[in-house]
Design a protein around this nucleic acid. Sequence first.
DNA 1: CTGTTAGCGCGTTCAC
DNA 2: GTGAACGCGCTAACAG
Lengths: 354, 354
Amino acid sequence: MTVTLADVAARARVSPATVSRVLNGNYPVAASTRERVLRAVDELDYVLNGPASSLAAATSDLVGILVNDIADPFFGIMAGAAQTEISGQEGSGRAGGEKLAVVCNTGGSPGRELTYLTLLQRQRAAAVVLTGGALEDPDHIAAMAAKLAKLADAGTRVVLCGRPPLPGSEAVVAALAFDNRGGGRRLTEHLLALGHRRIGYVAGPPERTTTRHRLEGHRAALAAAGIDEDQSQVTVHGPYARRSGYDATLELLRRDPDLTAIVAANDTVALGACAALRDQGLRIPEDISVAGFDDLPFSVDAVPALTTVRLPLHEAGARAGRLAMGNEAPPPGGIATIGAELMARASTAPPRKG
Amino acid sequence: MTVTLADVAARARVSPATVSRVLNGNYPVAASTRERVLRAVDELDYVLNGPASSLAAATSDLVGILVNDIADPFFGIMAGAAQTEISGQEGSGRAGGEKLAVVCNTGGSPGRELTYLTLLQRQRAAAVVLTGGALEDPDHIAAMAAKLAKLADAGTRVVLCGRPPLPGSEAVVAALAFDNRGGGRRLTEHLLALGHRRIGYVAGPPERTTTRHRLEGHRAALAAAGIDEDQSQVTVHGPYARRSGYDATLELLRRDPDLTAIVAANDTVALGACAALRDQGLRIPEDISVAGFDDLPFSVDAVPALTTVRLPLHEAGARAGRLAMGNEAPPPGGIATIGAELMARASTAPPRKG
DNA sequence: CTGTTAGCGCGTTCAC
DNA sequence: GTGAACGCGCTAACAG
């Protein structure tokens, strides 16, 4: 039924071992033999049996990329860059020694995250890239650290991209962490410099590193400016979604109608915030300023163009891909912090005098 | 080093076969035995060897989802829905009989598309879902048809989602095609009803089914309204990207400054078009109307809100996932057309008199 | 309900 | 430079 290595060997009048050698290209083979084998492969339309070769070699060419939300370009950009770096730019359809780079959508669920890791472990994946913020629940952290240690132990390269180093797991090849705290601080400093004092904050889901770090940066800037009031009144948490920005903004306005600026957990949330403000008849930035985070492609096209913090998602993803392939030396200590740059645009302006 | 089925069997004082049976849950096993085995699995932290079991069973739990651009929510939404349907909503980290749903980013390259299919074939994937428009190059169509036939032959379920049925391949379980032609026609009819007569069109890349069908719908509406001039003057092709919409719009304005409306290949392109128009000092929709396609989440938040055509991406992806799992009966003839609904919003209005 | 026996298809020592 | 033999870890018949 299905053609095997032995069939190819018979047709090429060589031994199975030789066929294996030309296919893997790791041993010297006479040019004439190699050609004969390749021809037989073509004529028979032979496709290597992945499971069999993985079993025999005790490794596979699978590389998993985990994302929290595949419908969010934040993850799509990183994953795409990593995948390109791993699978190679072009493809002939032949499929030589390529890796199979593959993205897995956890939906932000810790259970699914662990399940995917187990599934990848089961496949003896060559590498795993974890993108985006992590959940800070102690149980989950412990479970993740244990799982990653086991993966690393089995020879799987583990790379973190846009995620802070996991406490208690030195099993990781490299962690590329975004400077969310610094970015958050600079963004709020920008607002403070414009003269804002009453700033609402639409935060991401609690217990996520990304959420916490951005919020900490925000509050650090406020504290440095001598704004010491309790911020919990003007902070609302919610998922990283447009809808959340919309609802939270209405809530913030209800709590404090005198806010002169709103900082959102990310650009998507900021867009929802803008919609809510418009629906309330408020003009941006004349009546109220808005800022986001990430600088996703659509942010520059928003009206008004969104002030935000740029994260080099593409570069980070590509670098993670290279690290996963072993094509780049890990940073010193295995940890690199990736800068976050303020992009001041039209959605922020000085508050109204009055 | 790594613990195997035999280790578990020894610890549970049963035969390897029994362990296999409780793990796969396909044979009756005494409750007491099953519990003993499960405990041993836990104590030993055993993880099934995927390649070995795939080899023995001649099937795998891998399901591939191919997308043209993972950074584009159009694909992200479909892929996410399909993946959820396949992998299940929740996850305990245990990984029982779950499938490993996995998305592969072709970047729109035919070579990479074939490479990924070969890689999935090599893994003996349980199913493959192809999303989005297809390339119309005859060679590529033939190669794809052959490849899909071979996959189907090897027991892999093939499902098309948002892609028209492949001519010459009846190997496909089901094809869910979007009504791009109908949607395109209704959109342009809407513009015509508003009074527009000079309409520019920013098309997608040539030789893509999606591009062609949307354009055909557009032109069908024009023809039905008696507008028979050569449309090639007011049509510009480009990738499905923001930048393309920007550049193409400038080009269209140069060719015909009297355009009263611009139809874009999709919402992302439409956003770029809007940016270009604003940069030219034109107001939307007072000076010129703009329309997109897909109704991605951000489109309703654009300013002004974007008139577009809604595609039920989530539903289509979920259905494709169910079809891939064999959890839903294929439509009659294996082909279903999915409706596209006009969403008339603020970015379109009657043209200026004068 | 459970143990025994064979392979699944390939990579990898060894010899030659 | 090439072939022969063995085993990777598991599932699928068969018994019993």
